[in-house]
């Protein structure tokens, strides 16, 4: 079930217009799963390198590892 949920989340992320998504956006891909449980699944996706975090310092978002940082001009520096 967790593998299925993972692939649904990843499918969702890949089809979004925005490169960065909030946690509750990700949860929309698996509406039947409690958010506390969804958190564990998302943790696994991060640990497996399928998703990565992006933070404004005050809030955190999720993105694909292939996406750059907020400031594309900074790309060379990261």
């Amino acid at each position: 079930m967790s593998e299925d949920a993972k692939s649904r989340i990843m499918e969702f992320v890949k089809t979004q217009k925005k490169s960065k998504l909030y946690f509750n956006d990700l949860c929309k891909a698996v509406p039947e799963i409690k958010m506390m449980q969804a958190k564990k699944i998302v943790n696994e996706l991060v640990n497996e390198g399928q998703l990565k975090y992006w933070s404004s310092g005050s809030t955190t978002m999720y993105m694909l590892p292939s996406e750059g940082d907020v400031d594309k001009e900074e790309k060379g520096m990261n």
Binding site: K17, K18, S19, K20, S56, V70, D71, K72, E73
Partner: peptide, 12 residues
């Protein structure tokens, strides 16, 4: 358009 993702700025 080069350094920002417009939907994210709007949502921010």
């Amino acid at each position: 358009q080069n350094v920002c993702e417009i939907p994210l700025v709007v949502a921010a």
